[in-house]
């Protein structure tokens, strides 16, 4: 099969399968509801929780506090599970959290090569690229190539540390605080913290980008 044929086939396939899947899931929910296994109101709340409450803004608040409060930063690096609980974050897919700190010499990056392990309480649900074959295959072998895909390059002399989340330990990258935000409140600092900077595939924003 040529790549053109393949693409063409794949496109049609996706299109029809999308609506087919939509119908399939709707039917499945009906079956499970009628059998009394699931409560649609509970499903609504699960969705609402991860669409509106649990997301990377939580992690940004954690990072902003670590940037502002050296004692909190020390607690975060010592026991991240306990430290995030101070801000009210805990639970599913973050039961055993470890924070890893970027320095001028060391850049951390987190991946799950086997599936999609990701620290939900602080980052929410993972983006599609994090779960994709290109990221999962490349992050452990060519992390600089991954960073290039994200459009940045580390300064020469920076080592890379890749954390493959193969157990129930979840990793949160503590990025370096950008210069030029001295005296900022935690709330404003959190605006600098991007999701990707907490995975290690990006850097925080610069103060002029949000000022």
């Amino acid at each position: 099969m040529t790549s053109h044929d393949h693409d063409h086939h794949h496109h049609d396939h996706d299109h029809s399968e999308l609506s087919e899947t939509q119908l399939r899931v709707r039917a499945l929910e009906t079956i499970l509801t009628e059998k009394g296994y699931v409560d649609p109101a509970a499903l609504d709340l699960l969705i609402e929780t991860y669409e509106t409450k649990v997301g990377p803004r939580n992690g940004a608040r954690v990072v902003a506090r670590a940037w502002s409060d050296p004692a909190f930063r020390a607690r975060l690096l010592k026991d991240a599970t306990q430290a995030i609980a101070e801000l009210g974050y805990a639970g599913r897919q973050g039961e055993h959290l470890v924070a890893v700190e970027n320095t001028p010499r060391l850049h951390n990056m987190v991946v799950c090569t086997l599936c999609s392990c990701y620290p939900w309480p602080v980052l929410g649900l993972p983006p599609v690229w994090y779960k994709s074959a290109p990221y999962r295959s490349k992050a452990v072998k060519d992390p600089r190539g991954v960073l290039a895909d994200f459009g940045f390059e580390l300064p020469a002399g920076t080592d890379i540390r890749v954390w493959d989340s193969t157990a129930e330990i979840r990793y949160l990258v503590l990025p370096m605080r950008p210069a030029g935000a001295e005296g900022w409140s935690e709330e404003r600092l959190a605006d600098l913290v991007t999701r990707d900077s907490m995975i290690g595939t990006g850097l925080p924003k610069q103060p002029h980008e949000v000022a």
Binding site: V25, R26, A42, Y50, G55, W129, V146
Partner: peptide, 23 residues
């Protein structure tokens, strides 16, 4: 092929993804 981040990616891309996740 490269890693392809999606700008301003939504948490879910279709209604069935929401329901499949929650179920």
């Amino acid at each position: 092929g490269p890693v392809r981040p999606e700008p301003n990616e939504p948490v879910f891309h279709a209604e069935w993804e929401r329901r499949a996740f929650a179920i």
